[in-house]
Design a protein around this nucleic acid. Sequence first.
DNA 1: TTTTTTAATGAGACTCATTCTCAATATAAG
DNA 2: CTTATATTGAGAATGAGTCTCATTAAAAAA
Lengths: 140, 140
Amino acid sequence: MTRSKSLLINILRNEGLRYTSQRRAVWNELKSSADHRDAEDIYLCLRRKKIRVSRATVYRTIDVLVKNNLVRKMELGDGRALYEPRIGNEHHDHIICLETGKITEFYNEDLEQLQEKIVKQRGYELVRHVHQLFVRPLKK
Amino acid sequence: MTRSKSLLINILRNEGLRYTSQRRAVWNELKSSADHRDAEDIYLCLRRKKIRVSRATVYRTIDVLVKNNLVRKMELGDGRALYEPRIGNEHHDHIICLETGKITEFYNEDLEQLQEKIVKQRGYELVRHVHQLFVRPLKK
DNA sequence: TTTTTTAATGAGACTCATTCTCAATATAAG
DNA sequence: CTTATATTGAGAATGAGTCTCATTAAAAAA
């Protein structure tokens, strides 16, 4: 608690931003989420808890958290986004089974390096990536 | 032309849908696109050509085309989408420049094989994949 | 501590891609 | 040709997210 409080303070200080009750509340809410949450959900939860905060501030704060790697943004591809606290630095490439709908996360170092190489060759620096493998169970 | 006309007719017939001038026009427009186009762009081009069609119909038609694999939908992750005709089964991994918006397609054999390997290890067979690298130009 | 400076906030207007509504129209079947 | 019904167009509605700007609250200065 103290640890992650000072974590937020440090990040804000670093960015020349102020440590406000709203930013603290949004980060606490997100931090204690097991699941992927959307911004509206976080806003509603905070309001239900009688915390005075606006939608605009929730969005603004999430942006800061994402930019500073406290939170991961997961684009749904239809204009919506979900957020989850970053714990460690696990990877989020997905295997999506077309038959069962099961989503498996995977990480492969070779793949990561290949991606870096591919963009570097073309004069770019990799910012983020989306990698989804749509699959079917192997039949014997 | 005749070939792809009957292609569209067959798909529509298959789905129990009617063959209308609007659906034909949207497909022709998309079919003759080299580039990735968005729905608004297709709508405006058709209107400029004096073809009587509405935005709603463009969106509705594109949905049909995507569902039937005549067109590939590419989600930009911020609520927008681009479309391109499916011609054969070329590869569509994308490098998307966050600064200029430029989209480069790439193909890398090692990457393809890695993907196959990754899913096979987990008991799956790869059906299709989405791979987008969001990048920034390298600064010297 | 009190005052001053300036960043942050809230309410709600706004944006923009997309979807919906429903009366009018066009297609395909009979 | 007539009928039944799918499709269309215009524009309203939606919904996630952003913006504005007067007010409030951190932090710095006194």
